[in-house]
Amino acid sequence: MDLLYKIFADPFIQMGHAPDLLLQTLWEGLVGGMLYALIALGFVLIFKASGVFNFAQGIMVVFAALTLVGLHAKGVPAFLALGLTIGVMFVLAVAVERLVLRPLVNQPDIILFMATFGLTYFLIGLGELVFGGDPKVMIASELYLPKGAIDWKVFGGFVSFQKIDIAAAVIASVMVATLAVFFQKTRIGRALRAVADSHKAALSVGISLNQIWVVVWFTAGIVALATGIMWGARSNVSFALEIIALKALPVLILGGFTSIPGAIVGGLIIGIGEKIGEFYWGPLFGSGIESWLAYMIALVFLLFRPQGLFGERIIERI
């Protein structure tokens, strides 16, 4: 009875007593969720267009951020370094298409999944070899990202918003909007959607798959760079960021592998659920439940909707 009370009543009473704390937790969750959503977005882009479950997306985030910071540390001005990093991501996209995707075309999914593992290891090694493995500070002020916090007085307490988080929210929204326009209105975007629908049909109307793959991996690379900058500005740039890639996986299954809105909504649900769960229910289980709560939330969702919230309905034929 006592336990039931602690699970089902106590946390809500706490929420009622300190609404400002609840708001603060919600906001933290929202920001965390947004970053998960961005990583998931990279996954979805690649999965839709090439059917590859890109495990390396998380490492691409770290690699992009590391390249940016590393170049700056070698004396390149901040914005030039940003440009160069985008260039590096383009080279990476071309290299992946040439050396990994093209030779492995038409292989089973699991083989391609495995190949992205190889890519993960390669990028970890390369990044550490060139820029060193020690944690680095993101060049936030050089890129004119705002610092400090805004306090909002509410419910007799206050909620503090980090300016960098607000900036992150704005940048993420702009990026998602741009991607949406890119997908809906441009020629390449239409080609991308065609490829996502059916590889063979797209090929037969003259769309170059190879070109599309480069575009998609490059786009995912840019999304990775943006994610890396924002995540790096909140903590440090190091390979510990790798772990957030694993956090993006439940977001994916929650939203569905093929849905961009799903990635975003899923990211927000996981981010908020995780923070609220950790804050209000965590002490009950001896804390640290953040590490698996997201997966459990996703698992429960999966039992009801096996293709995720927004995923395409899986139709099976014999």
């Binding site: 492995l104 090694g125 550490e128």
Partner: peptide, 20 residues
């Protein structure tokens, strides 16, 4: 150690390309 990571990764890919 870094080279080991790189070579392992590259070998996995090369290997999958040669014999999936």
């Amino acid at each position: 150690e870094h080279l080991q990571f790189m070579i392992t990764g590259a070998l996995i890919i090369v290997f999958l390309v040669i014999e999936p």
